[in-house]
Design a protein around this nucleic acid. Structure first.
Lengths: 189, 189
DNA sequence: TATTTAAACTAACACTTGTTAGTTTGAAAT
DNA sequence: ATTTCAAACTAACAAGTGTTAGTTTAAATA
């Protein structure tokens, strides 16, 4: 037995396929074939295709929410909080490379849980924004449009899943450190 | 008549839908309904669904390739080249917000033209990388792993299509200037 | 006026989609 | 030895898919 429950195996294989082709382009028969079984057999373990996607996305969204909550209540300055945010993105992405693709690209195909997901996402971005604004007030972060900083850092972190697989040599801490240098200090010599 | 040929109208409407739901989840009947006609009528103007996607993506990929080619032969230093790259991304994205979603998320559904697209993309990234390495050699860019700089800047630029629509107040030059500040100089005060 | 043309239409096709119902299998628990 | 149960199976469904063929319409051109 490779891993957890049969359901988890299905979700893992599905995530791999979703990353390659996107949720809509992957059929239940594709998933079943990858498992070496028939499509109808999947329904002994999952309720629907939707169900698989929901499992992938909501799990991750809650991981990020929990990570952000810890940072929120921690007693560190704004730059250190940014470092921590980078860390949780690197760690979660390294452990869920395939799943991150669905989170980024297929959240709009959630149905019943779409509103819940959007709530978590908005909440996450609000907390992130507050950290930046606070940093500006304390003269730790350069003053300017907080949105530009928020989205330029967040875009990089959200795209991590695309290029982390290419460079598994790197240790998570090294990668986080490199990213922090570039994102926080810029690239100019 | 709102715009160009009937074919262009179809491609434009399709790009709008592809951004919302992704290529695979949009049907020919969806596109037709948005145009106020029947699905079969689309085939008077386009050859296939594939054809629409190819038009969207290859056009954009060539736009970026041309922009990069101009920068490559220009006689400016590395930081200025990075500024120019940011500029072309902002300009192309502002004028093709919907299309950018397909370029980012649906390129894998290209069929005959997939190899050509990948060639253009690799070529673009190679040129980008060379600018960074050159900047490190000339002490204009902080020394370190060029990949981290490459992908952190590129991730932000490739995600522009996601948040540019939210803030159309901004003039392109202002946005490019703000981005340059953050990406080149970092965020630390 | 007669002809051409762009652009729509109806009707249908072969195939794929997610899903359900009912059944079989083989190992573990009683 | 009997029962239970997880996990597979076959067969089928209703709906939706991209696409084709052939036809109609109305405006522009000759």
């Amino acid at each position: 037995m490779k891993q957890g429950t049969r359901k988890q195996q299905i979700v893992n294989i599905a995530a791999r396929l979703f990353k390659e082709r996107g949720y809509s382009a992957v059929t239940m028969r594709d998933i079943a074939t990858s498992m070496g079984i028939k499509a109808s057999s999947l329904y002994n373990h999952i309720n629907s295709k939707q169900d698989i996607l929901t499992n992938i996305i909501i799990f991750l969204a809650e991981e990020f929410t929990n990570g952000m909550e810890d940072i929120k209540v921690s007693n560190i300055n704004s730059i250190e909080k940014l470092n921590k945010i980078i860390e949780i993105h690197v760690n979660i992405t390294i452990q869920n490379t395939f799943e991150m693709a669905s989170l980024n690209n297929d959240w709009m195909h959630l149905e019943e849980r779409l509103d819940y997901y959007l709530k978590l996402r908005d909440n996450y971005e609000d907390n992130f924004r507050k950290i930046i604004v606070e940093g500006m007030e304390n003269n730790e972060i350069i003053k300017g449009n907080p949105e530009v900083i928020l989205f330029s850092i967040l875009s990089t972190l959200r795209s991590l899943y695309l290029w982390i697989p290419k460079k598994e040599e790197q240790k998570p801490e090294d990668l986080a450190q490199n990213l922090t240098n570039v994102l926080i200090n810029g690239v100019k010599a």
